[in-house]
């Protein structure tokens, strides 16, 4: 056996697998006697890493379960359909649900087309150059700016300079800038994943570039783009700091996009921060977290469809 192992290097490797390390690693063993043997170290470290990963999942589960247990009992039909009374101590959150949908929906309606068009330009209408690097750099930087800075900007630019006031439209425009990088990035990835051969075929059948993009590429990339859009809606719903300064805190049903509207997240912040009503705060949080859960499920579903389609 020994002779065979020496004469055949392949067998020497098999030996290493069975626990006897090959000479390179074996050699300094006498100096390392006090150290933990590698296989034990492996077990300890992997155990520790798993503990870390599981604690992340545990934190998530805890947050969801905690909010649901404390909040769901207070989520009644009246809570969803009534306006708040006495500063939020009584009543429900219907204007906030409406305001959240208005601000987030409008933001994505603005950022969606711009983001997708940017992605189309970057992938189909130009090749890599200083200009594309510049555009991507802009998007990357935009993605890193904190929401409070967006809030300051929206406050002074949209509300003040453009005269839109503290309103749904100011908030939506600010949010649109915030989610634009996400939409650009996900759309670009989705479009790049469309097989190059589709483009050849489409051109070969006499399409123009624009026809190729709209009829083949976008069609295949749509679920991928959808994922990005849905995640942007999620981010819009969660946003508070920027909206506090742009769409404001008025807890009434807005009558137009130039009215202020308080979103669910901001309402929750106010209720809990000012200690107005803990049951109402928990209930609002439950609605918020449920919305986020559903949106993530939707994004996940889009992603599955996209993967199925591209394959």
């Amino acid at each position: 056996m020994t002779r065979q192992a020496i004469s055949n290097p392949l067998h020497a490797d098999e030996g290493a697998d069975n626990g006897a390390p090959p000479p390179q690693i074996n050699a300094p063993r006498h100096r390392r006697q006090l150290r933990i043997p590698p296989d034990v170290a492996q077990r300890i470290v992997v155990g520790g890493l798993w503990a870390i990963a599981m604690s992340a999942v545990a934190v998530l589960l805890f947050i969801i379960v905690f909010i649901m247990v404390k909040g769901l009992p207070h989520v009644t039909p009246e809570f969803l359909l009534q306006a708040p009374a006495k500063g939020g101590r009584l009543g429900g959150v219907s204007p906030m649900i409406f305001g959240t949908i208005a601000v987030a929906g409008l933001a994505v309606l603005i950022a969606g087309p711009i983001g997708v068009i940017t992605a189309i330009y970057l992938t189909e209408y130009t090749r890599e150059s200083k200009l594309t690097a510049f555009i991507r750099f802009g998007a990357d930087c935009l993605a890193g700016i904190p929401s409070i800075i967006f809030g300051l900007f929206g406050f002074v630019f949209f509300a003040d300079t453009l005269g839109l006031g503290i309103s749904i439209i100011s908030g939506a425009l600010t949010l649109a800038l915030m989610v634009l990088p996400t939409i650009i990035r996900t759309s670009e990835e989705a479009i790049r994943a469309v097989p190059a051969a589709f483009r050849d075929v489409s051109f070969g059948l006499g399409s123009t570039r624009w026809q190729m993009v709209t009829r083949v590429v976008l069609r295949s990339a749509l679920p991928g783009i959808g994922t990005g859009i849905v995640l942007s809606i999620g981010r819009s719903i969660s946003e508070t700091a920027a909206l506090m300064l742009t769409s404001g805190m008025v807890a009434r049903h807005p009558s137009s996009v130039f009215d202020s509207a308080r979103t669910l997240a901001l309402h929750f912040f106010t209720l809990s921060r000012e200690g107005i009503s803990m049951p109402k705060a928990y209930a609002t949080a439950a609605v918020l977290v449920l919305a986020i859960l559903m949106i993530n499920l939707l994004a996940y579903w889009f992603m599955r469809r996209f993967i199925a389609r591209v394959r």
């Binding site: 992340a56 999942v57 934190v59 998530l60 947050i63 905690f66 909010i67 995640l231 999620g234 981010r235 719903i237 969660s238 946003e239 508070t240 700091a241 997240a265 901001l266 929750f268 912040f269 809990s272 705060a281 949080a285 918020l288 977290v289 986020i292 859960l293 949106i295 993530n296 996940y300």
Partner: peptide
Amino acid sequence: PSIELLAGIPSVVYGFI
């Protein structure tokens, strides 16, 4: 998906917890 969902939880909820 858990970690992605963790990113989706609103910051006010984190603050509240």
